[in-house]
Design a protein around this nucleic acid. Sequence first.
DNA 1: TTCAAAACTCAAAACGTTTTAAATCGAAGG
DNA 2: CCTTCGATTTAAAACGTTTTGAGTTTTGAA
Lengths: 350, 350
Amino acid sequence: MAATLKDISAELGLSVATVSRALNGFPEVNEKTRVRVRAVADRLGYQPNRVAQRLVTGRSGMVGMIARLNADMTADQTFMEILAGLTAALGARDVDLVLNVDQHSDPVVPLRKLYERGILDGFILNAPLIDDPRVAYLQSKGIPFVMHGKHSATADYPYYAIDNARVSADAVDYLVARGHRRIAFLNGEAHHAFAAERRQGFDAAMARAGLKVPDWAIRNAPPSVDYGFDAATALLTARDGAPPTAIVCASTLIAVGVLRAAQLLGIEVPQDLSVVAHDDGLPQVVSDELETPLTVTRSPLREACVPLAEHMVALLEGAEPAGLQTVARADFIKGKTTAEVPNGGEETWL
Amino acid sequence: MAATLKDISAELGLSVATVSRALNGFPEVNEKTRVRVRAVADRLGYQPNRVAQRLVTGRSGMVGMIARLNADMTADQTFMEILAGLTAALGARDVDLVLNVDQHSDPVVPLRKLYERGILDGFILNAPLIDDPRVAYLQSKGIPFVMHGKHSATADYPYYAIDNARVSADAVDYLVARGHRRIAFLNGEAHHAFAAERRQGFDAAMARAGLKVPDWAIRNAPPSVDYGFDAATALLTARDGAPPTAIVCASTLIAVGVLRAAQLLGIEVPQDLSVVAHDDGLPQVVSDELETPLTVTRSPLREACVPLAEHMVALLEGAEPAGLQTVARADFIKGKTTAEVPNGGEETWL
DNA sequence: TTCAAAACTCAAAACGTTTTAAATCGAAGG
DNA sequence: CCTTCGATTTAAAACGTTTTGAGTTTTGAA
């Protein structure tokens, strides 16, 4: 049914070899011939048979990705956002994405299963954990992969990540410069690498300012509005010590909860409380939920997709993994949720 | 690296043909030979090269699916639920799922793009619309597909669907039998085929009971808690006529909103108001959100996945599409949100 | 002992591509 | 006029499997 190289070669009286070379842009084929070949190929609607290509080249042009679902079977927005951008970016580079859904507690199982099907060139991973077992598995097997994020400071594989330590350091520095001394931190889950980096940046910036933070003012949980609401309520009505004058949030979702809690408690933002969040650029979260623009560190997830796809392609073409490591810096965007420390808020915690 | 048929045949002094047949269970190979072959294959860890298999069989073993995202980049739970079940069910049948994300207004575009990559054997479609353009496209091109749901009563392609007309008819019949006369219907979006079928079943059952429903008591919107809440609030405080004594909901999400609205209005369920919903068996929605068990028509989305995968495989193996049409019936499960019509509620609407 | 039928096995072709090594051609150089 | 070189093009092998059509044994009856 579909046109093959043989069809084209027969029609032109050329050999399949020449036709193949012409279409693949080899230099040794006469330009006139190339034009003729391309014309016939277009007319016949020739599409190379990827299975045959794969058989001879040993590559399939397909990469795998595993969807980790929440317990309630929803994929979080961040995953879907990446997925949307990635299928587009990969598609533009002639790579297809095979998806599987993780139903196991062990994240390596779906990876192994999918790989053993024998059809994939590599994987795209996201949401790295500290000591991510997927990294260990893939590296031990020599399976190519690209990570969105990086699981440790010494990651020796291709990745696209943002400078998470800097994200929280930027937030802290900005707040400290405005006189804030009691800064709380609503972080992501502790086992996520990004949260560990954020924590590290937070701690370092606070230390530079000579400030200490009690344990109860640094929290870890999966980002959600409820988490922000509950944590902020607890922080702002704390009996353990003075309430924070500023809260750094790992995501805008959390910040939304914080703002709601503050409103309910009659605490004015930014007069009484400053809020800084990290913004992944998810479409809805910012626009719909917020009347006041947040002060954020911003790095849209979408921007990661093209570099990720490019790294993947380069990796499969044999590039050195060491050259495929990108760290982007998040923008700092002043909104209306940060202000000078309120009167009486200068006292430090410890 | 990996063992091939040739390796096995060389080791045993057999031809690759015999080895191939032995491993594939052909009847004409000697049982003793088969045992020997299998032993060596196991020892060598032989895994058939799928690419080579596919080249010769002309099939790729991959089917495509398009994720339609909401405006906020979240995939709805129903899609993810199907995706999760489907990747498992297809994987068990040696079929892989290639995913693309729909970023277009025209649903045919991503389908066409993906197909023209030339790597897919077929598609799995979900959420059919009335006069679904995807059906027209795929049928005109002769591309195999299986639908979750069906876009019209005369669908002549493979599908797995539930009897949606019966779903709402069952709900209405049950309520009518309990004396209800004023039954409202919070349906899904009108252009979805399932919603049209539900509406048809609702209308038919109401007509059989000799009842009429004013336009304002039948609503269409994407299922969500907010929709249920808003619509119920409007219905129960209606100035247009007597409020309904029962509400049929297209999804449990909607019902959750209805229950909240009723509670806020001081309306007791089920004493003052009966609520019936259709339950897709999504993990969270029922368990977390509800204290009182809903009366539901129930058909877990998960149950659709294995039949869908089986239909797909059968279709690709050349089965007649007409034999691959399954219509399942939803269970009716009495909960605690339905009761006899309240006193004074017997009056009809029109 | 022979022979046909059954049982089993094999060599080779096919799938559609890439790639290696060799062949062809025309023109330039001697 | 012969050689050589560069520019093109080609035939053929290779990837690993399935499958076709043709052997080659074995079996059982004549």
